[in-house]
Design a protein around this nucleic acid. Structure first.
Lengths: 204, 204, 204, 204
DNA sequence: CATGAATGAGAATTCATTCAT
DNA sequence: TATGAATGAATTCTCATTCAT
């Protein structure tokens, strides 16, 4: 009995932890860090604020983990693509398009990577997150240079630029002009831009 | 009847306004919008909070002006370059390098263009600011496409990507890797990236 | 799962809300709206300012409720009297005396009905409050005119004057003259005045 | 030369003092005590705030005098009427109508007599002001009782009620119902009410 | 002696964190 | 152990009063 209860409890605990992280991520995605108050997160997760503090020692640490989890997810997917088959050019395009499409689902979440968070601790996590995403592209650049697909260039700068390029292009909420680009065109445009930027032959 | 307002005093007034703007800009550059509380700005400018409100009707309007001034300055310089002599390729390189060098002086200020600010009014100003910077690059892209230097492409997406690319590359305050690139190399690397991205022949 | 919310706690919550309202009312009664700052009200209710905002969304809404509760109480009592038995003359006297006696308990609260409050929202509530009190007397005037007890006259003006007359007579916290009238004489005097004013035969 | 200058100066001083008082009165009449900030008063009087403090030691004392002056003016006019010819009934009607008509010109000034001012010192002055106005009516009541026009009654209570009655009737900004009473009807209605209230034969 | 910029205390409101129940 | 009411410091903004020029 005590055993079972303990197992159940542990599951519940893990469950709650996950629910909190999910709720926090959703709130940031919806309305940015501003809307993600501790109370809002707790409520959205179906818990009391007091309970939240049982799982996370502070708001800052919660959001450090939110960021970490989000980026781990991205890195896992992008990493799979980067380590996949095909030329560096093909894999780079696939990676950019994959990230771009997911970002377009919840455009505000992209903010999490660039926006100014409330807390220095979260800020530090944000920098690491960007670096990790950047590393995936760095690997792709190296591959492409090694295979002769891309010209010689600084992979550090190139990776940062790629991340910045599509983040900016995606984050910009809606074009002020009436001309509204379709999602497909946007994603393709960004990918083309990045490929040309690294010296790959595009559409060739 | 009224005492002649001394030149000294007028200078002091103009000085104060400038000092407040400067202090606000500096605080944002140092630690983001978070650190730039009204109290901090006033103190940093050597004034009381009450005095600040003689020069700016609200915190929001102060930061709208901070953003506006920064971007107006940028746009003026970039616009001059964009309307200058030389091929589109040359002008685009010059513009990117010019912006990049200035941004490196106060790396965090670039945040002002992308970071999530506290206030909706400032947010609106931020969107306009980004659009204005983007417009300069849009013009350059159009020029280059017209002259046959750049391949046909979406100038909207391209401009956004350029802004994003160098913002990201510059914003990263400290490189996570030990390898620290010299300023010259960084600036050149970003410019190369952008030029290749739009399909210009680089280093040719 | 959730701890049963104890009856004690629920009582405490209801208690707090009531205590805040009571404290606000008392502070207004003591020293007018001026003294009734959020801090003062909270402290007087034995709570922190933050706690007060759990019960009321803003200072304005708190005082709207203070006013509303006070006036609802009055209107209920006066309405009962107005709809009661007896001639219009008798009921008018009873209403005036009833209101006057209660007002004498907390003389300053009468201010709430006429004083200039800090907030437009409260001001709106104040106008409604006065209208509601006035309506009770309007009804009595109509009754009396219909029954032939009172001469034909403007019931709007008459009701306003009645409210004003006894408010003024009661509000004066300390008589400027040494001659201090007993409560009974004051109440009766006011009632006589009002009855004569509407043309009723007083004192037979 | 020194003489003349001094005289001029004194005149200017007196002038300024008067202008400040006038501006303060006007601002209260327009928008209540709330709008009458020191800065607003000074500006409206064409002076600097610093200059204002040369004429009045504090905001409170300024408004004490505003109230005093306003009431002195009223008392002078009402006193003339009260000491004039005609029966007590006629003079009471004339006094009420005279006050009411002036109050209708700047409805908000009536607030000065009843509204809660920002400062305890002004509050004290307000009480005295009301008493002084009341005294005029007290005299009229005494006259009327002495002449047999009015029945025996408490002149203190009666005077207070009269002041309250017309203040309330005048202050109430606009009737919420569409039925808008003309100024003449309002003034007459109030006067009738007051006359009947003191037992005078109205319209007889 | 006038000016009006500067002061600074005080007001309302928010929110991460704690703790009695 | 879970709850969520309570805390209290921090934030933006106002305004009577002062004082260098």
């Amino acid at each position: 009995m005590a055993y079972k209860r303990s197992t159940l409890m542990q599951e519940r605990l893990a469950d709650n932890r996950e629910r909190i992280l999910k709720a926090a991520r959703a709130l940031v995605a919806e309305g940015g860090f501003r809307q993600a108050s501790v109370t809002a997160v707790a409520q959205s997760a179906g818990l009391s604020t007091g309970a939240l503090y049982r799982y996370f020692p502070s708001k800052a640490e919660l959001f450090v983990e939110v960021l970490g989890a989000a980026v781990a997810h991205e890195v896992a997917i992008l990493g799979d693509i980067a380590r996949g088959d095909g030329s560096a050019t093909q894999r780079l395009r696939a990676a950019v398009e994959s990230f771009a499409r997911r970002a377009l689902q919840g455009p505000y979440l992209a903010y999490a990577f660039i926006a100014e968070p409330a807390d220095p601790e979260v800020e530090a996590a944000r920098l690491i997150a960007r670096a990790q995403i950047g590393d995936v592209f760095k690997k792709l650049l190296k591959d492409g240079i090694a295979s002769g697909e891309f010209p010689k260039q600084s992979v550090d700068i190139g990776a940062a630029c790629i991340v910045g390029a599509f983040t900016e292009a995606l984050v910009r909420p809606v074009a002020p002009t009436a001309k509204r680009v379709t999602e497909d065109k946007l994603v393709e445009g960004i990918a083309d831009f990045c490929l040309r930027a690294v010296g790959a032959r595009v559409g060739g």
